[in-house]
Design a protein around this nucleic acid. Structure first.
Lengths: 332, 332
DNA sequence: TTGAAAGCGCTAACAA
DNA sequence: TTGTTAGCGCTTTCAA
């Protein structure tokens, strides 16, 4: 029967007293140590169960400094790209015996801030996607190793897992051009005022083929399926002569695919669509999505491995690059 | 310059000595307490940064017992169903200021065991999907509140978030029957030897319409897109006269959708397909998937909320039920 | 405004 | 096999 007032924590001391042994013996029983009598052990275990005893993870962690926890921050776990990155991070962590605390910031700067404010007290290292400035990040994660994914750190304070898709985009554009496309649009992201690096790759690849890109053919899309659809609609209403589009990512591309269908356009016959990321989702849609593909899971895994290097002091913050390559499927 | 040998941890004591103050003052500076001189505070902060000091989360947690962490266990984060559940759990946790440690057991009993063995030392409560017996679970999570999702606990040791899809399945079958279907197959899961409860709902609903179900029309599928496709192929080769299928879940149903297309069958004209879960993914495929839908995110959220009740002692372990309802879209 | 002392709950060493 | 002692690193009294 438990008191209905303050539910004071049951400690190892209570168990010891109840079983008539020392705290040390309780510890031995609970941790399956060798030097303990069978019947004593059973008595202790019974007492522990009786009292509903749970060891404090803090006290235990304090004395056995052995567990490592990494914080993984993503803007939206439901976005399949981040799901794949998270999955890779989880697997890499598991293979090292690390634990992963996951935070979904809902792509919101305030929630990102709130996360950063609490994360420092919970983890040994932080990996993931952040929108705040490096100054902010540094201030909010004092002394903690941080690995930025998909973003080039400007200072040696952070490690970065970068993406080099230039060659992959070049392949994609060459493919489109070889199929006779010349009026090619792009559905860029709309997160920042300036164009993405992927747009730069796109423009450079187009320039290599001597094809000018009308600025109106560069549209911006929210990073959702619906956003991709809306952007395609905008693009096509202004430039109905476009025969192919390159999207900032697969989510946007899949939205475009769906919108094209609603427009009555056949893909790829009337409109070719190329995405970026190479999500598994791209193989489920009809037609299957051609994409400049990344090994998304290794993005997460590499981030955790880099975090491990930083935590152990095996390396200074550095950068790693993941390359993208064209995966030719049906949509282009 | 740091020693290249044992990288001994920098403690509050080191900072105190370096700044020429007491440990207490360091604590005050770091925790933004009021009673401290501005210049002293700055000196301490500088020293801390200089030494790369990071407070131990264990020591801090030990004395401040305020943070709560819940462990979320899923068999496969890449399965969109579990992604949605996880997303709901993360949001519910965030709103309580809880942290979530996520474990992906890769649908493997040994990894589940390994997870259970370490999770107790990391979290205040556990929620998620488990395949092991309640005896095993109880033994491995001594004293820790556990909430089982999608599984009815047999003992009051555990809370459960159950799914009641009987009415939803009945709606689905009524719909199919009203469209003239009578030879309806089911693609059940293949995780256990016995048929799923969803199959029982299916058979009961069919019986209510007085339609006998040939046992050969009950097939088993691995819970992947490919598994769903393979199962449909098996079913159709043995029973080509089937005009509709009900799948254990949307993932299997989407595999069936794809396979039907490869068979040259039009959906729903030649073959109607109904899934279960109501995943967002179902709206991305062509045709959009009709499904007995669940609020998957609330499944995760309810689990965390129940965990909160157990942790605070506000309630004894209990069960909650989430109901499913037919979402009519295009595939049936 | 600062410091000294006490203790959070546990386990690793050592002694009995 | 068991108990005693001494911390792990931090924050909260309380006194200076």
């Amino acid at each position: 029967m438990s008191s209905s007032t303050e539910p004071r924590r049951v400690t190892i001391h209570d168990v010891a007293r109840s079983a008539g042994v020392s705290r040390q013996t309780v510890s031995r029983a609970l941790n399956d140590k060798a030097e303990i009598d069978g019947s004593t052990k059973q008595r202790v275990l019974d007492a522990a169960r009786e009292l509903g005893y749970r060891p404090s993870r803090f006290a235990r962690g304090l004395v056995r400094q052995d567990t490592t926890t990494v914080g993984l921050v993503v803007p939206d776990l439901l976005n399949p790209f981040f799901t794949e990155v998270a999955s890779g991070a989880l697997e890499a962590a598991r293979s090292r015996g690390w634990h992963v605390v996951v935070y979904d910031t809902a792509d919101d700067l305030d929630q990102e801030l709130a996360t950063l404010q609490v994360i420092g007290a919970q983890v040994d290292a932080v990996v993931g996607y952040f929108s705040r400035s490096e100054e902010d990040l540094d201030r909010l994660t004092p002394g903690i190793p941080v690995v930025l994914i998909g973003r080039e750190p400007r200072t040696p304070r952070f490690s970065g897992i970068g993406i080099d898709g230039e060659e992959g985009v070049r392949e994609a554009i060459s493919h489109l051009v070889s199929r006779g496309h010349r009026r090619i649009g792009m559905l860029d992201h709309d997160r920042r005022p300036e164009p993405s690096i992927r747009q730069q790759w796109f423009l450079r690849a187009m320039a290599e083929h001597g094809i000018p890109v009308h600025p109106g053919r560069l549209t911006r899309a929210a990073q959702t399926i619906d956003g991709g659809g809306a952007a395609l609609a905008t693009l096509l209403s202004a430039h109905p002569d476009v025969t192919a589009v390159f999207a900032f990512n697969d989510v946007i591309a899949i939205g475009a695919l769906r919108e094209a269908r609603r427009f009555g356009l056949r893909v790829p016959a009337d409109l070719a669509v190329v995405g970026f990321d190479g999500l598994a989702l791209g193989t489920l849609v009809e037609p299957e999505l051609t994409s400049v593909a990344l090994d998304t899971r290794s993005l997460g895994a590499l981030a955790v491995e880099e975090a491990a290097r930083l935590v152990t002091g095996a390396a200074e913050p550095g950068r790693l690059i993941v390359r993208a390559a064209l995966h030719l499927r049906e949509s282009a």
